[in-house]
């Protein structure tokens, strides 16, 4: 099968840039902006599509680790044993159904949020401080990944300060 996104995405973006954009009414600002954003999204999807699986697998592994640490902190590891075992198995193997990995990470995200609620709800200041510290450590890495993925969108004031996502995921090719 030849009709694959690796060439179709850049081809669509090129057509929009070369043919459609010049033909668009320059005074129609909303249309101009929407088309430029469409091209921008296509460019990002085309250039980062090959990193998506590695990104999702990395997210799964880190969320599983954070969920496991929080569960240990709260003494609720048994409640999350199945989820953590399933995530650990896939993260360890480095293989799995892409949609299933995203769904599992979403379960982990929800579990982490529930544990945050549980922890703060106990009214224990020392425990709250530990959760706060744990979530700060988690966020430090998670946000770097997210910012790396969103880097081509141009929101960073100092883009050089954010490592490219390929490098963060160990996927730099010579």
């Amino acid at each position: 099968m030849e009709l694959r996104p690796e060439f179709l995405l850049p081809a669509i973006a090129k057509t929009l840039k070369d043919v459609i954009l010049p033909a668009l009414d320059e005074t129609h600002q909303v249309a101009q902006e929407q088309l430029k954003l469409a091209i921008g999204f296509l460019d990002i999807m085309a250039s980062q599509r090959h990193l998506l699986f590695a990104f999702d697998l990395d997210e799964l592994a880190r969320h599983a680790a954070t969920a496991g640490e929080l569960a240990a902190l709260l003494g609720t590891s048994a409640d999350h044993a199945d989820l953590l075992a399933q995530a650990g198995k896939i993260a360890g193997s480095g293989a799995g159904d892409p949609d299933g990995i995203v769904a599992l990470t979403r379960q982990l995200r929800a579990a982490i949020v529930a544990m945050i609620e549980d922890g703060y709800g106990r009214g224990d200041a020392a425990l709250a401080a530990k959760i706060h510290s744990k979530m700060n450590d988690y966020a430090k890495v998670q946000l770097l990944r997210e910012r790396g993925w969103a880097l081509p969108m141009g929101f960073e004031n100092t883009p050089d300060a954010v490592p490219a996502i390929a490098g963060q995921l160990g996927k730099v090719t010579a």
């Binding site: 954070t66 979403r106 995200r109 982490i112 949020v113 703060y120």
Partner: peptide
């Protein structure tokens, strides 16, 4: 659409 744990953490703070 999906939970973002650090958003929940900030809310508690």
């Amino acid at each position: 659409n999906e939970e973002v744990p650090f958003v929940s953490e900030i809310e508690h703070w």
